[in-house]
Structure formats: structure tokens, C-alpha cells
Amino acid sequence: MAKLMQIMLALKQVSFGYKANMPLSVNNISLNLAQGSCTAILGPNGAGKSTLISLMSGLLTAQTGQISYPFYSLYTTQEAIAQKVALVPQDFAFYHELSVHDNLAFFVSISEKNRSLHSNHIKSAIRACGLDDVINKMAGSLSGGYKRRLNIAIALSKQPDIIFLDEPTVGIDPLSRDAIINLLLDLKQQGKTLVYTSHLLHEVELLCDEVVFLNNGKVVANELLNNQKPSLNFTTVKPLSPSQIALFKQPITILENGGHQLKVSNSEQLASTFTVLANLSHDIKTLTFSNSHIEQLYRDLFSESSC
């Protein structure tokens, strides 16, 4: 049964530019973030990802358009909304000279006015992120994986509904990465809304429900990841003729780089595709099989704009 999703954050034709005589960093973007969803914002450097996240998290104010929080009442104060939004920067945004507990205590003291709740918020963040063993250790002396967890724990100690994460697994070992991915999946299950940026696209596919591709401040593609299919890509020595293309049972997409792509959803389709390819073998230059739809899409979209 389809689950009815509450919209937590809505952007309507939002634009923002840093200087009047320069192109807009975010240009007329509309977007809805549902409760319990994970949305990835992807794009090359300078695409406008940071500006878009700054706008969504309240760090910047939109110059045109509207950013609203439909889940909250009209009468909810800006301060209360700020309480529900948390950032997890890529850098370790905490005090390395303080212990794990003292870091959490400091941030909770700012976010929560009711002092009787401080202890609960700290404990729940520690438990959620598995920091029990290092609670009294200096943050600076923690391993990379624990530092990443503390970075997330500080965000969680705010008891947020929407969490913005910037490459939360960068530079850590696979086991720590798995732990963080599982933590983020748990948060989704709990109904937290995640906004995610990362260059590790397999993580995006694992975590996210939707991917927003940005370039030059505009949304260039918006993909839902709930219906992914593996894809087969090949290039030929010379362009395929219409009769050759007609041999394939699945529709073929001709990519910008001259390559061809088709999607296969079962073994039967795969077998028939290989049969056709075998007949064309003298014309095939490259052949790749990819189950990462996002990665391929990323390459297709940005192969020219990236260095």
C-alpha cells in the first residue's frame, strides 16, 4: 500500500545570485522534500549545490521564489523551524580539544532551552551513533570513523526533522562506512528527511529515493531511484543504421558521446541483447555493463562540463 508522504520542505521557483552582474547560482528551482525521504543533490563543482543547500537550511535567504515548511504551522517561529534543521558538514565541525560528551553538551545547551532534556538528547545521540565506548575521549583523538559519527551525533542531538549531510562517509574505512550508512537508513526509517551530497554514487543509490542533478544553478535532471534497471552501454566503429537498431528488442538511447545505451530488466532481455550484439561484433568498439544507473546518468549529463 502506498504510503502518504508529508512534504517537509518545499521550494517554489527559488533563485539566488551572489552578485548582481553574475549568473544566478540557483536559478528557478522547485523541489519538494517528503518526510522520511532521502534526496541527493548531485552536480559538478560550481553547479550550485552548496548554494541550494544553504538556501534550504536557512543559511541564505532566497532572492525570489519561496521556501516553506508545510509540515509546520504558519505560526511556528523561525527559531522553532531552525530547531528542526541540522547540518552535518564534510569537515569535523566540533571542538577537538573537548571530549565527545562535552561537545554534545555544548551544542545541546544552544539548541535546547529546557535543561532537563539536555541529558536525554545527549544520551539518545550517543546511542544512535554508537559512541558509548568513546564518550569521555577527546574528540581530536578519535578515529576517522568515530569523528564522522560524532559529526552526525551533534546534528542528531538537536532532535531535527531535516538533516543536510555533506559527504558524511568520506575518508573512512569500509566498516565505519557501513555503520554510518546503516545509521542513515535507520534515520530514514524513523521519518527523518535527509538531504545528501556525495561523490560516492553507489552510496547515493543505496540511501536515496530521489536524485536532483544540478548544473549552472538549474535542475538538469530529477531521477526517482525506486525503479532502477541495469544498463548496457556500447559504442560502435560507425553509427548503427536504422535496420541494425531495429534488431534490438529494447529501446536504444543514443548518448551525447556517440555511445548507445539500453536498459535490461531480466535475463531474457539480456540474452536477446547479447545475441544481437554478437551479430554486430565486427562493429562493436566498447561494451560495458553497468548496474549503476546514477553513475551513468552523471557521466552522460556532466561529461562535457567536468574537467
Binding site: L59, A82, V85, F107, I110
Partner: peptide
């Protein structure tokens, strides 16, 4: 430099 101020900027203070 380490993003703490950016983080704090989203706090209700």
C-alpha cells in the same frame, strides 16, 4: 574553517 560556525548558524540562537 571546520564548519562549526556554519553549523551554529542553523541553531535557534
Amino acid at each position: 574553517n571546520n564548519g562549526t560556525l556554519v553549523r551554529l548558524k542553523t541553531y535557534p540562537i
